[in-house]
């Protein structure tokens, strides 16, 4: 068997099965901890603010991407932003098709670099780039300090 033969069935040739047998526990990081703790306890997004050049960034970082200064200040920016772009998603990452697509959007916040990618729950006829959308959060007692503490963004 060689390159000139086309094989369509993986198991037709001699084979072994294998895997990389690991899983992961990622840290939220210093800035991530501040972001998710604030969201969980105070119902607001925070951005990092650079004391040297004034750039605000979401998700927050411990350094300024513009000037590389260390961040000493984190500022609240509320829960409402502007829909920057969106898509209707039919297939998931395992190649499975969903009959009813969900809408994924990028939400940006005034005067802040970066944004939040999340599910968007807006009537199809109202969905429009530039519209104001706000985060709907889970009830406080159901939050666990992760991105799913946000249920979705909706029209405000």
């Amino acid at each position: 068997m060689s390159f000139k033969d086309s094989i369509h069935l993986n198991t037709k040739l001699g084979y072994f099965e294998g895997e990389i047998p690991v899983n992961y526990q990622y840290t939220l990081g210093v800035a991530g901890n501040i972001f998710f703790k604030t969201l969980m306890e105070k119902d607001e997004f925070i951005a990092s603010e650079c004391s040297e050049c004034g750039t605000k960034t979401i998700y927050p970082l411990i350094y300024c991407e513009e000037c590389f200064a260390p961040i000493e200040k984190y500022v609240p920016i509320g829960l409402v932003g502007e829909l920057y772009s969106y898509t209707h998603c039919y297939y998931d990452y395992q190649g499975i098709r969903h009959e009813k697509p969900h809408v994924l959007g990028l939400v940006r916040f005034k005067g802040v670099q970066g944004g939040i990618v999340h599910r968007i729950e807006v009537k199809p006829e109202e969905l429009k780039i530039g519209m104001k959308v706000g985060a709907k959060l889970k009830p406080k007692n159901e939050r666990n300090g992760g991105i799913d503490d946000i249920i979705h963004f909706e029209k405000v």
């Binding site: 840290t27 990081g29 210093v30 800035a31 901890n33 970082l61 411990i62 350094y63 590389f68």
Partner: peptide, 18 residues
């Protein structure tokens, strides 16, 4: 185990060197 993420650790070392 550091609380810092990979990029955060990279930043701390890079900033010190600069």
């Amino acid at each position: 185990r550091a609380e810092e993420t990979g990029p955060e650790m990279a930043y701390l070392a890079s900033k010190m060197a600069l």
